[in-house]
């Protein structure tokens, strides 16, 4: 009977246990790694979102300040204010009935500071394009990415040829 039951080596039970534990640990570690990557991306995106909100508020405040300062400048240069300031500074208006107070001369090429000069206006121009801090990698889907790559590839091909 013994000859019909040949003995064979098999893995020791503790080794089997160890193998299972290592497998579970590897899976756990892998999952943890994936979660870490996910958490890292989430953290960065949260941070970016917070920055966007903070910058938005900052931009709105700057925008309000610019508008306020432009109006302050308008108040300081208002006609009556400037007249009063000129008077305080000792300037007087020319009496155009008194020819001794002024003289007209022709200066070739001089267009003068008359009413036809260009308006002096400094306005902050708005951004014409939407600027995002978020990289496209975070916003585009796989299909969009593929489409973009294919389009870019086609365009490059066309340019090359």
């Amino acid at each position: 009977m013994k000859a019909n039951n040949p003995s064979a080596y098999r893995m020791a039970p503790w080794r089997k246990q160890m193998k299972r534990i290592i497998t579970i640990l590897l899976v756990t570690f892998g999952t943890a790694c994936v979660m870490l990557v996910y958490l890292s991306i989430s953290e960065r995106m949260t941070d970016i979102n917070m920055k966007i909100q903070a910058l938005q508020e900052e931009r709105a405040e700057y925008s309000r300040n610019i508008a306020d300062l432009t109006t302050d400048e308008g108040i300081l240069t208002a006609y009556k204010t400037m007249q009063e300031r000129a008077a305080r500074a000792g300037f007087t208006e020319i009496d155009f009935e008194d020819n001794d107070q002024y003289a007209y001369v022709i200066v070739d090429g001089y267009t003068g500071a008359g009413i036809n000069t260009e308006p002096q206006i400094q306005e902050p121009s708005s951004l014409t394009e939407i600027v995002s801090l978020i990289k496209p990698e975070y916003t585009e889907s796989l299909q969009e990415w593929l489409y973009k790559r294919i389009s870019t590839g086609i365009e490059s091909y066309e340019v090359t040829n």
């Binding site: 709105a60 308008g74 009413i115």
Partner: peptide, 20 residues
């Protein structure tokens, strides 16, 4: 929100603006 546009005279002096 954005701001209402300004109004200027022909020389560029502000006639209507915005304040906070």
């Amino acid at each position: 929100s954005s701001e209402r546009g300004n109004i200027y005279d022909r020389q560029g002096y502000l006639l209507a603006g915005n304040t906070v």
